[in-house]
């Protein structure tokens, strides 16, 4: 008896919803940690899409790419959190609206 298969469209819709949530989080949140988490959300949304398509086409390339994305995201988190700590040490805040030194 075969387990019931979830159609790929569901995964894609979930992925798209997660991605849009990530985008909105980046655009509207002011807390740097929250923006960071939103970025993670976007990354994982794309990961979800990749594995879904990998399963659909039976191509392990998608899954492999996901491993790369996860490992690079880990590195990115390390760098990003370090940046945030550094910003907090100088600015005493992690409100990104305060970081407008590049204003023209």
């Amino acid at each position: 008896m075969q387990p019931p298969t979830v159609p790929v469209e569901n995964f894609i819709i979930l992925s798209a919803v997660l991605f849009i949530m990530g985008i909105l989080g980046v655009l509207v949140r002011r807390n740097a940690i929250m923006i960071f988490m939103s970025v993670e959300l976007m990354l994982n949304a794309s990961n979800l899409a990749l594995v879904a398509f990998a399963r659909q086409w039976g191509d392990m390339g998608g899954q492999m790419t996901v491993f790369f994305v996860i490992s690079i995201a880990a590195a990115e988190v390390a760098v990003g959190l370090a940046l945030i700590v550094a910003i907090f040490k100088t600015k005493k805040t992690i409100d990104i609206d305060e970081l407008n030194t590049l204003k023209g």
């Binding site: 407008n100 030194t101 204003k103």
Partner: peptide, 18 residues
């Protein structure tokens, strides 16, 4: 004129990228 584009807010840049 062009300097007005540089708001300094990250979300502006992110939105532009989007």
């Amino acid at each position: 004129r062009l300097r007005g584009l540089q708001t300094g807010y990250i979300r502006t840049y992110v939105f532009t990228m989007l």
